[in-house]
Design a protein around this nucleic acid. Structure first.
Lengths: 172, 172
DNA sequence: TATAACATGTAACAAGTTACATGATTTC
DNA sequence: GAAATCATGTAACTTGTTACATGTTATA
């Protein structure tokens, strides 16, 4: 489970509390992995139970205490294990958005084209948002680069599909 | 939900029974979408309840009767609706395998390199399996092409990461 | 003074998986 | 006669989401 690896990896670098982790992921990794608050909190609880992380509380004003998590030696072991496993494996990403393209010939090209152009615009704006994200975050840069490359591939593929549709529209 | 679109789209082309659908997906689309048997059967039941598809039974020998599903007019409507929605949207694929790369600097390059090379070999063999799949399946070809492109991007990215590691190993 | 951000969490639900169950037929 | 394939399915579990709950502090 990659979210576990992610949390362990983050906590390994600095101690952090849940809210902080959520913010970091939303801000910089949210387009590559989603991890919603409830899931993050649940995982943190579970990993605490399992002895992989531990926390101390810190109170600022009268807000709910921050639970500042640190990785334990057992967590470090688990991290190393998961990391080596995960580095040497590959599970292809599911591409749910792709399925509809298999059925586009159901509709007349004139109807499909604007839909695909809308889709492409979404992908382009995602790519551009990533490109203009100037916060070079050391190790995350690698993931951001990965994401940009795949977004570019997606744009190229979509453009080819669109082009083919356009010529078939003219030709047919 | 893309699996629903997929099932409706398949049944729209020919009537089919569950086992057949599972086979088709395993054989040609399995690397892009997984749909396990229980999920497929459950969806077929639910869509029947909802009036999107209907079935007749066909018995061969003493085996359990095949339930041969056909799309209904309401299913056709739903299909059109889902298709238009899905064509114009884009949800980036989650890339769980990528997370570990953010933490590779945890290990010495000499230890990371063989792991990443193993990973790359997996991706390469997936790509090659797709390339050598000669069963050109009309509309699915588009999805297969999509998949191959992303696998290629993945290979390029991994190769760059590996190359960087190699030079840093020599240089450092 | 209202809204956003801070900080945690629970409850109910949705979706999908694994493992198991059943039994016939074909192939080695 | 054992193993694979055909054909359906159930039960228990895992994982994650959405919506809701609670209350504080900073900002516009």
């Amino acid at each position: 489970m990659e979210r576990k690896l992610l949390l362990l990896g983050l906590l390994r670098q600095h101690e952090m509390y849940g809210y902080q982790i959520n913010d970091l992921i939303d801000a910089h990794l949210g387009t590559s992995i989603h991890l919603t608050k409830p899931t993050a909190y649940r995982l943190l609880h579970k990993m605490t139970e399992d002895g992989l992380i531990s926390f101390r509380e810190e109170t600022v004003g009268n807000r709910p205490a921050r639970r500042i998590y640190t990785i334990t030696p057992r967590g470090e072991e688990e991290f190393q294990k998961l990391l080596k496993e995960s580095l040497s494996e590959y599970k292809p990403a599911e591409q749910p958005s792709t399925i509809s393209l298999a059925f586009m010939d159901t509709l007349p090209p004139g109807e499909v084209l604007p839909l695909l152009e809308k889709r492409r615009a979404i992908v382009v704006s995602m790519r551009d948002a990533r490109l203009s994200d100037e916060s070079h975050l050391g190790s995350y840069q690698c993931i951001i680069d990965h994401h940009i490359r795949h977004l570019n591939t997606e744009i190229e593929w979509l453009s080819d599909v669109i082009e083919q549709l356009e010529t078939s529209k003219v030709g047919g």
